[in-house]
Amino acid sequence: MAAKKNGPVIALGAVLAAGLAAPLVTGSPLGFYLEVLIGGLMAGVLYSLVALGFVLIFKASGVFNFAQGAMVLFAALALARLAEWLPAWIGIPAGFPALTLAFVLAAGIMVGLAWVIERIVLRPLVAQDPVALLMATLGVTFFLDGFGQTIWGSDIYKIDLGISKDPTMILESMFQGGILVSKEDLIAAVIAAGLVILLALFFQKTATGRALRAVADDHQAAQSIGIPLNRIWVIVWAVAGFVALVAGMVWGAKLGVQFSLAQLALKALPVVILGGFTSIPGAIIGGLIIGVGEKMAEVFLGPPLVKMWDLAGGGIENWFAYVLALLFLMVRPEGLFGEKHIDRV
């Protein structure tokens, strides 16, 4: 009981590693394989970004924020539409200046939203059963989805970061035909990495960050030394809102801003299960594992499955993440990096 049970985790890791290596063994071209791998890593970075928002809120307030996906959609909608409207409203040039201003405004909106959610939803429900809180965030999800589309519109919008979407060839000397990589994906990865570093600095170096960590460790102890819980929660939700904005921007630029973003963001749930609810590195590594895993499964496992059972198409990536998380839950409920806790009677 006291010793950590690592056996099942190692077994699962071995299966995943074998799955990762299998395509190479069965003779897929290395260049194509690497392309798929990189594509998976990119998707994983985006999952990590959303998962990061989850972990922040869960750490500080014990709320499992189902609405993180809706916040991503809301932020992306705000950004896309403001960038479109601002030139007409105040006459600043379209393109990068408008986008920058729109980003600042959208960040402001997300902070305001965080404040409202804390005031109206969380404060009255404080110390409720976690499932009730989860359902409350489900309510927030629906409200935000409806509200966002009411004020921002419900078509598909573009966020143009001014980066060419054309793929570039890299490593041409090493492989025949090289590897196709989209510049946009690279930039996305850089932005995500930058955000993670920024958050790490914020948590380690600032007084607010230290207070946040104190609250995450022990609510009551933090309160007793005079850390105002309510303000901390607003800050955490605001930071999560900002993370959602960055995720929305990157994701929106890649796929277009549309309703399905919120659905995609649901994939962050299995990510946090895998990584552990309270771990920031867990969110990042979990995101990468799931991003790579589902791409690999779709590309290399899908076609043989379709052939074998005569399926009407692939689409394994729709459930791969959830089933993987479920299997993982059975062997290690606290996740890769999460903390185990003991019930007291």
């Binding site: 629906f142 409200f143 989805d145 409806g146």
Partner: peptide, 11 residues
Amino acid sequence: HLEFMIFGALI
């Protein structure tokens, strides 16, 4: 959209 908002708010 209103339906979504009302559901959410009611919950």
